[in-house]
Design a protein around this nucleic acid. Structure first.
Lengths: 206, 206
DNA sequence: AAGCCAATTATATCATTGTATGATAGCGCG
DNA sequence: CGCGCTATCATACAATGATATAATTGGCTT
């Protein structure tokens, strides 16, 4: 597994927290314990570190289901595993639709939880890899001047320099300059690279 | 909703089938009824027509859950809504993980089922649109000669004609021929188009 | 006010690409 | 055997793209 990963345990039952804590630590995972959603939010802003949530659906204050939704709205992409003592089917469906990695009815076997955590951490890793690529591209794209961005979009759409010039009411030479600058700033060695970058950035001409 | 869409109802309870049947027909949907998975498989090969499945998890012969998996293995992408009279949480989780649109515990309200069907049909529509694009591209790609495919892959990767020629031990002129043929056959007006097609086809130069 | 940067245009040179024309060769199929 | 397709290479020309040098303008910062 990944030993830098942190499992955030949120449950109001201290004995269960401790049990999970030792289970995870026995496999080399780091853990954090919280007795409520509020405690989690107050304590640890889970930046972009690897990890996952393990939480009960019924918690003091905010339910695990609402929390799941709230995290999503906040843009915090942390894979979640939900637990429940008295869950029903609609609750399960809602959790899974909201993207939960798993939904475990208490009592569950240690191995079930460990498997779920492994999947959650892997899913989180994939998400981080994917979003890191996009973020890197966005960062590069942000360094472009407005004109360079326009030219990049049109060139990536397949327009010739001449056509871009007509579209933006510029001379072809100017387009070449911006095009070259955009390629250099984006780190694109070839036009194919630039097209793929524009694709990943979702650049659509107008 | 979509009135060409067909809802395939699979349940061994004839009265429930009839109830669902009239519910769906009242909203303009077409329906087909089957009392088992075997009957469905024997009767209707659900080609590429819009539609979705509504089936019980417990069925004579093969369970709805196993059927879900089997359909996936057969490459039949038909969104499924599962129903259950005595379902539990693990069963629900398994169904949702397998891609079920919804999992409804009997008894459910008519509107819940209709909402689920609407979502299922929409999801199916999206899938068909996406796969139709890919299939069209694959069909075009299949008309390319082996050389044209090689050249297309390398050109899309960003190599210059000269570099492609070196890679394939050809003259630059020959590369141009194949490149032009590939562009024409694929219907790509610009290099950017070809790159996007190669991307969609998952063409990676080894 | 001076300096920096984005944006613009121009000239010039060189590499790359697109396309047409022509030619040769192997392969399978009726 | 001839026909068509694929594959190969060549010459030639026109269009396009990449890059450097140089100059002008306007906005923003120091």
């Amino acid at each position: 597994m990944q030993d830098e990963a942190v499992v955030y345990i949120i449950d109001d039952d201290a004995s269960l927290r401790e049990a999970l804590d030792s289970l995870f630590r026995s496999t080399g995972l780091s853990t954090r314990q919280y007795d409520s959603v509020a405690a989690f939010m107050a304590a640890a802003p889970p930046a972009d570190t690897p990890g996952c949530l393990v939480l009960d659906v019924r918690l003091p204050g905010m339910s695990g289901l609402d929390f799941q939704q709230k995290l999503d709205e906040l843009g915090i992409r942390l894979p979640a595993i939900l637990m429940t003592g008295h869950g029903d089917i609609p609750m399960t469906v809602r959790a899974m639709k909201a993207g939960a990695v798993d939904f475990l009815a208490k009592p569950f076997r240690d191995q079930e939880m460990l498997d779920a955590v492994a999947i959650a951490l892997d899913r989180g890793r994939q998400q981080r890899i994917a979003s890191a690529k996009i973020e890197a591209l966005k960062a590069l794209h942000a360094t472009l001047s407005p004109r360079e961005r326009q030219v990049m979009a049109l060139v990536s759409a397949g327009l010739l320099n001449k056509q871009v010039a007509g579209e933006l009411d510029l001379s072809e030479i100017t387009v070449k300059i911006h095009r070259g600058s955009a390629m250099r700033k984006m780190g694109a060695k070839t036009l194919a690279d630039l097209v793929r970058m524009a694709e990943a950035l979702g650049l659509a001409p107008e």
